[in-house]
């Protein structure tokens, strides 16, 4: 029981971390809440199903293609729709929501709303402290950690990372220092899309694919980024594991837990915003509070 909770929590946390870091990155740099973020996760998962099962490609090729396609879609949506209205919070939230609906309908039209299953990368399982963990779950966790370490290295060790962090701190000053802010925003959006797509690809085999699969993780990552502090990458990483464990605990220990897990995560979010609005590691945006 306890072992099961720990291992399930780590795996859940890993996936949420991938999604939440991208969401938090784009909020930190562009100050916009992208409600279509988890749609890229859905697109990548459906992409792997389409390439591997419908077209019969080898899995690795399907994964790479799906990742590329999702990233291109992510950058295009930013360039065509979001970029023009990014100064206005409400408009950004509305337009990304409308785009999420477009993606959902697109998936319903192309794949019907029947639940589908994607093929597994590797089969079999491994017994850790008496709990059977499938290799697919271990792969999910491993890939999540590897990708997040890459993101951390990129943000802290490269010139591009410095530029992204500078833009997040103050985009006007960054612009005066010769950073092309529009390009940085585009790159950040691309990175967020890549992170979401990686999450979608590794998780796809363990889930059933359906066109509404973007809503439940969206609610979860909103709670996570608020818990960790909006715009803080480290915060969303740690927050993802906390919320992941909370979710698993609620599902394991409470009757009707599957329905209440979202409610619990959101309750955590509301309490955090009331008690400590900057989150665990967030930067306090003085001008955005009273």
């Amino acid at each position: 029981m306890v072992e099961g909770i720990i291992i399930q929590g780590l795996i859940k946390g890993g996936t949420y971390a991938l999604l939440a870091v991208g969401f938090s990155l784009i909020f930190g740099v562009a100050r916009m809440i992208n409600l279509s973020h988890t749609c890229f996760y859905m697109l990548a998962a459906y992409g792997i199903y389409a390439f591997a099962k419908m077209l019969g490609m080898p899995l690795i090729a399907a994964a790479v293609l799906s990742l590329l396609a999702t990233t291109i879609i992510g950058i295009l949506t930013y360039r065509l729709f979001i970029d023009r209205v990014r100064e206005h919070h409400v408009t950004v939230m509305l337009i990304t929501l409308a785009l999420a609906m477009v993606f959902q309908e697109w998936m319903i039209i192309s794949f019907t709303s029947e639940p589908l299953g994607a093929p597994s990368f590797i089969s079999g399982y491994w017994e850790i402290i008496g709990v059977k963990v499938s290799y697919q779950h271990l792969l999910t966790f491993g890939v999540a950690l590897a990708v997040l370490i890459c993101v951390w290295a990129l943000l802290s060790k490269t010139r591009l990372g410095v530029a992204i962090r500078a833009t997040a701190q103050d985009s006007e000053i960054a612009n005066l220092m010769g950073i092309n802010v529009r390009r940085i925003l585009l790159v950040t959006m691309g990175m967020a899309a890549v992170l979401a797509a990686v999450a979608g690809i590794v998780v796809a085999p363990t889930l059933t694919l359906e066109p509404r699969m973007w809503t439940s993780p969206l609610v979860m990552i909103m709670a996570i980024v608020v818990l960790g502090g909006l715009g803080s990458v480290k915060g969303s990483f740690i927050g993802a594991f906390i919320i992941g464990f909370v979710e698993v605990l609620v599902v394991f220990l409470m009757p009707g837990g599957a329905f209440l897990k979202g409610a619990f995560a959101l309750l955590v979010m509301v309490i955090i915003l009331l008690v400590r609005p900057e989150g665990l590691f967030g930067i306090a945006f003085e001008e955005e509070r009273l």
Binding site: I33, H89, V219, M222, F259, G262, L266, V270, R289
Partner: peptide
């Protein structure tokens, strides 16, 4: 309104978004 007194902008949007979803979870649980 209680949280709304302290928050604004996107933060308020997130909190208000959460309330009906919390209630929805309760509706499904009981």
């Amino acid at each position: 309104c209680l949280p709304a007194l302290r928050l604004r902008g996107p933060y308020l949007a997130l909190v208000t978004l959460a309330f009906p979803l919390i209630l929805l979870g309760i509706v499904f649980a009981f």
